[in-house]
């Protein structure tokens, strides 16, 4: 089979990463911000897999699993907190949470 050049996958990862970054910075809704964070993490996982392919090692995929675990953990606690905020403050606006400042 013709192997896909890893650098192409890395370029895709860069694109996804910056899209996620833009999402975090631009969206005010917490759920969207969490999703954008997932996109960034996923991009990092993509680089790991691509790098593993470039070196012919399984380490890349192991690290991808690590990223996956991490994403799962972050989503779990993130969503729990978001639910809590939704219940307590009845808003998902990230900008509304700015009482701590100065």
């Amino acid at each position: 089979m013709t192997a896909v050049p890893p650098e192409a996958a890395v370029l895709l990862a860069c694109l996804l990463f910056t899209l996620g970054l833009a999402g975090v910075l631009a969206r005010r809704n917490l759920v969207f911000i969490l999703m954008a964070l997932e996109i960034m993490l996923n991009a990092a996982g993509l680089v790991f897999v691509a790098a593993g392919a470039r070196w012919g090692q399984a380490d890349g995929q192991v690290l991808f699993i690590v990223v996956l675990t991490l994403a799962a953990a972050e989503v779990a606690v993130g969503l729990a907190l978001v639910l809590r905020i939704h219940r307590q403050a009845a808003t998902l606006d990230a900008d509304a949470a700015s009482r701590l400042r100065g």
Binding site: A13, E74, A97
Partner: peptide
Amino acid sequence: IEAGLKYLILAGFSSAILLFGIALLYL
């Protein structure tokens, strides 16, 4: 809650940047 929210988002954000850097290092 507000502090937790900030920590959640910003720590996740920076973790993603760190991970991306590590991945590039591995690459």
